[in-house]
Design a protein around this nucleic acid. Structure first.
Lengths: 201, 201, 201, 201
DNA sequence: CATGAATGAGGGTTCATTCAT
DNA sequence: TATGAATGAACCCTCATTCAT
């Protein structure tokens, strides 16, 4: 009867986690607008009001999910990058690890567009912040690679942007009309475009 | 009293065009769902009911805009492609012409994502049709180029998809956080990724 | 070129009549609310604005049609009633003549209910006026018949009302779920209820 | 604090009942189309959205009210009819009980016409169902009475229809222009028309 | 005078958010 | 604290009426 009694048999349910997971799932599946708070509550198996004890608004709920995704990406990147190694080496190793979280990244992509369409300025700003983290890392790495003459002279910001978009296209956008690509296929095509170019040598 | 008389005073307002332009602008700026018919009416400077004299539903209005964009693209492609010339030649010539209509293509991109999230099956089908036109052309050209050994062996469908996404990224998505790129910049980066690759030779 | 010229070949179209006929048809077929001015204009083969040169509002158009119906009824009654003859004789003769205009009376019935539901006070008052004309006549006749001991003592107003409703039921309301009754069937049932009663003698 | 404590202060409001009553009132007073959900909400003293927690659409709200009315009628009929007794005996006993629910029956009548004019096919089907229940009962009874030679030979379906319409006319339609009739008056007139006939014997 | 394109008030419905329990 | 019934602003669409031509 006393949930806080010693030896509590039933571990208290982490309602916030339930909500976050349900929301992630629903946003991922149906998009931002099409996800109703009722739906999230039902999936999370909590009362609708409960959501509002953790998050002030639907938008804030969305933002927190987004931040989670990006912080995971950041951790991966920091773990995998080793400046002793060459650019493409790092790139493909990071890519490899990132692809483990593909499904979550899919969400990020799916929503980034939508948030721009619907979100309040706050939300849009949040989204921009998220992308910046990734783009900033890429930019830094690209600049470093140019400096060490590992890749051609180029506008590092644009190149970073294209690299990011390419990753997004292969891991997420492609799936909307086709079977998902294998990890292998994704890596090969990244290599084809980024490293070698299409033209026969 | 005679409208065709010399010095025609007030040119008659083309309300349908006004509506189409207003809708294009609003869809482009705020997305599909976030664009209300009230808003379109206000921007177009017409009564809300007026819109419904030209278009049965909001969705139909959207579809018509989309179809306009795609038919323009198609015309450009058909005009510019010349199989006597080599792949990259054609590619950059088409690209060059397409870039003239950049702002309209921006709309297309912006909406493609959203439509998938929200649209009715009809709308989604419309969007898929739009993209197919482009992707089909690209696929055909890529296959042709592989056959003539102008580009490396590769999965033409995936490569086409990436080419398309790259175009979209450079002409539209980039603008959300930066100043639009110049025609030159766009072409250079397409060349960098598609033709040469990033790696120093 | 001069429509009023002598020997005008093409008789000028009576637009008002066209409108009245079209409106009668549409009201009759679809009811008051479901009849749009667009529809009336189309059926009448005139511009929508033209209707408003004859009638200030949709309601006024409806009222005029109603008045036409009632004035026809009135004429019939006045022509057929002959106080030299007995009550039931007059009743069936009037009935017989009224049934010639059944289709128009159907309209009246159909609308009477609806007008009460939707109409402005003015419209409702118009409808009441229409019914009063008939009910007043019936009341007068019933009273006369009671006085001459042709029918039983009864509340003439209620009896008149029931007679009217019975006529309406047989000529109009029945048709909504069944094949229309023949003139004969209608007369027989009026006789059954009004003259003889159902009970076996 | 304890709702079940003695002297329960505020009885909990049954919002669904409030809505049903408000809707019944408004439908009854203004008809189906002229009743807006805003109005129902205002009369029921609830938010507009509240209605939609109980009923999916305006039509469903209407249907539920209708079904309630008809199921009440059915119960009465089943309770009062006793085939040991003669036709007119049963008729007047059922009538007597039905008249207790006069105000609800008024609604039914008022709407039956309108629904035919405006309703969706579903609604119309609902209305037909309602009337069928009554007409079927009447038809069966009339047939039975003819067989037992309690009433004259006649088309039982038409006679049933007229009986129904007469009931409607006396309990509902009369009230639109006059003071409601007393139970007594209604019964007397039913007897006059159905049993005895108007003609002096 | 005849026209029909233009209008905008008003309708049913959805859903993020609140708050009494 | 957790709940979900209640809320109402905001959406898309209809149609009687107006008015420039």
């Amino acid at each position: 009867m006393d949930k806080r009694g010693e030896g509590r048999i039933i571990p208290p349910v982490d309602r916030k986690k339930q909500v976050l997971e349900a929301a992630t799932q629903s946003f991922s599946l149906f998009g931002y607008k099409a996800t109703t708070m009722d739906q999230v509550a039902k999936i999370a198996n909590v009362g609708k009001g409960t959501i509002y004890t953790f998050f002030d608004t639907k938008e804030q709920l969305f933002d927190e999910i987004l931040l989670d995704v990006i912080s995971e990406m950041k951790k991966i990147i920091e773990r995998e990058v080793d400046h002793q190694k060459v650019f493409f080496d790092n790139l493909f190793r990071v890519l490899d690890s990132l692809l483990e979280f593909r499904s979550e990244h899919e969400l990020l992509v799916k929503l980034s567009q939508e948030v721009r369409d619907f979100g309040t300025p706050q939300s849009q700003e949040a989204m921009t912040r998220v992308e910046s983290v990734i783009l900033n890392y890429l930019d830094k790495e690209v600049k470093h690679a140019i400096l060490h003459q590992e890749i051609r002279e180029c506008d590092s910001e644009i190149v970073s942007f294209l690299m990011f978009k390419m990753y997004i296209a292969l891991t997420s956008e492609w799936n909307k009309i086709h079977e998902p690509l294998s990890k292998q296929q994704i890596q090969e095509h990244i290599r084809l475009f980024l490293e070698e170019g299409l033209a026969v040598q």
